[in-house]
Design a binder for these strands. Structure first.
Lengths: 214, 214
DNA sequence: GTCTATAAAAGGATAGAC
DNA sequence: GTCTATCCTTTTATAGAC
């Protein structure tokens, strides 16, 4: 638990090729950690899943919590990348917002992200820095991006937005609706495209009603 | 793990008085389970916290998972009771909705409920029946209640609500906004009354814009 | 019923050979 | 670097006295 920082590089040779075993371990750890919970996941299970001895796991990542941190960070960069751009080439606000909404919903409702988010929430006590990293890389970025767009639309007169950040937060809050909670509690399967579009449409409609230029 | 059902009653004497130790154990278990996570909580810690020997814990609740289930169920009934009524004596919809919104927000953002919800989410894999019980007793009830009220307002012409259930879900989704997520991730403390009212006001405003009678 | 003491198992981490 | 074998702590659960 002390030597968190120095176990990173020993798997790269002079040529910078990452070890294949390291990737296998990380994949296996992702499945095991996110399939269960931090407490329920054992290093034995991870080693078995990766087809590798336990000692090899410890050679690459010095301790369980380090490995867990690597898993969460990895997922974080994977998941958030595709989201966050509003394409504001001249399209009408309805179009643009519907696009953002459907992409956002598909992303956050996907099983990969749900499992990740459950894990982050569950271990936010033991690993506060991971919770913060998640929030900064995901929800916060998304909100700021959308706020920029809303602010632009306000200047152009296409929308009436007094508080871009507040409105952007509200927009995403509307999208994270009942379905999102049921997914979080594992009560609903990943929705179809139709389900996603319906949810997106309702939220966009209400949002536009409240932000129509007078 | 087999004898889940038969350890319930042995703490009541012929007069029906519940044993005080049982309550102490349940309180202690609530603190320990909800302070950490299922995996991180140990039966030793619970016994110590309750001021009781470990064997006594096992006498009352046969196993760790049974005790955990009892804790979650207990919390469930405690927390959801105060919420869920809309007072629709003739007050204007703004007033009524603001009342619902502030009470709802205060309830769900309170540390007790946050800890409970984190625990339910975290262990929804191991205890799906607890996740379902939570959803049924809490969010679902709240939505149905509000939908009834909205439907009434629609009939009276005070609001325009085509889909009461959908609108009710959206209303609560708006309330569970950014602040809720940051609370879930333990990044924000319990908000002041002012913070709660501001969030409630924004959501109610947008909701009314979209449901004004034409 | 409640306690002290103990069994039995699981899991995190390490030693040492190759 | 990777493996096998092992240590040692923690934790669930039980036995038996009072």
């Amino acid at each position: 638990m002390k030597q968190a920082a120095k176990t990173q590089q020993k798997t790269e040779k002079a040529n910078g090729q990452p070890s294949p075993k390291r990737g296998a371990i990380l994949d296996a750890a992702t499945r095991v950690f996110l399939g269960a919970s931090y407490g329920a996941a054992s290093m034995d299970a991870i080693a078995r899943e990766a087809g590798v001895s336990k000692q090899t796991v410890y050679s690459h990542f010095g301790a369980k919590n380090v490995l867990y941190g690597a898993v969460i960070h990895e997922k974080c960069s994977q998941l958030m990348a595709p989201l966050l751009t509003v394409e504001h080439h001249g399209a009408a606000p309805e179009k643009a917002l519907l696009g953002v909404a459907t992409r956002f919903l598909k992303l956050i409702l996907a099983e990969g992200n749900m499992a990740h988010y459950r894990a982050v929430v569950a271990e936010s006590g033991r690993f506060p820095e991971l919770a913060e990293a998640y929030y900064m890389a995901g929800p916060k970025k998304a909100v700021e991006n959308l706020a920029g767009y809303l602010s632009l639309m306000d200047k152009k007169g296409s929308l009436k937005v007094a508080d871009p950040l507040g409105s952007a937060r509200l927009f995403f809050a509307m999208l994270r609706g009942d379905l999102y909670m049921r997914r979080l509690l594992r009560m609903a399967p990943e929705p179809t495209d139709g389900g996603v579009e319906a949810a997106a449409g309702q939220a966009v409609g209400v949002f536009l009603d409240a932000h129509a230029p007078k």
